Amino acid sequence: MANTASAKKAIRVIEARTAVNKARRSRMRGFIRKVEEAIASGDQQAAQTALRAAQPEIMRAAQKGVIHKNTASRKVSRFANRVKALG
């Protein structure tokens, strides 16, 4: 267990950051799920709309350090290719 005041504070800060990151990751995954479902349904228009909504959310997660920026770019790129293939 933490012994010093600074160590106790560090634990509190880490818990707060973890909660924020969890919320951001969960939000991003929700947007990704909507894109996946739209692609699975075969509706290109819906998939495009879902991707347009998901892209900034994915990039924001990367900017905030929830995921790596290359991971975000890869996800967006692969989704864009899959949506394009529906047409």
Rank of each mutant, 00 (worst) to 15 (best):
M1T: 08
N3Q: 12
N3P: 04
T4L: 06
A5N: 15
I11K: 06
R12A: 11
R12Y: 04
R12D: 13
V13C: 07
I14T: 13
E15Y: 02
T18M: 05
A19S: 10
V20W: 15
N21S: 02
A23P: 03
S26G: 03
R29N: 14
G30Q: 14
G30F: 05
I32D: 11
I32F: 08
R33E: 14
K34D: 12
K34I: 00
V35F: 00
A38M: 06
I39Q: 05
I39R: 01
S41H: 04
S41R: 09
G42W: 02
G42A: 06
A46K: 15
A46P: 00
Q48S: 09
T49G: 12
T49E: 15
A50H: 10
L51A: 10
Q55A: 12
P56G: 09
E57W: 00
E57S: 02
I58Q: 01
M59A: 02
A61G: 04
A62C: 01
A62Y: 07
A62N: 06
K64V: 02
G65M: 01
G65K: 00
G65L: 02
V66S: 03
I67E: 06
I67H: 05
K69E: 14
K69W: 11
K69V: 10
N70A: 03
T71P: 04
S73V: 11
K75W: 11
K75C: 04
S77F: 01
S77E: 09
R78Y: 11
R78W: 03
F79R: 08
A80R: 11
N81G: 15
N81K: 15
N81L: 13
R82C: 08
V83P: 11
V83N: 09
A85Y: 02
G87A: 14
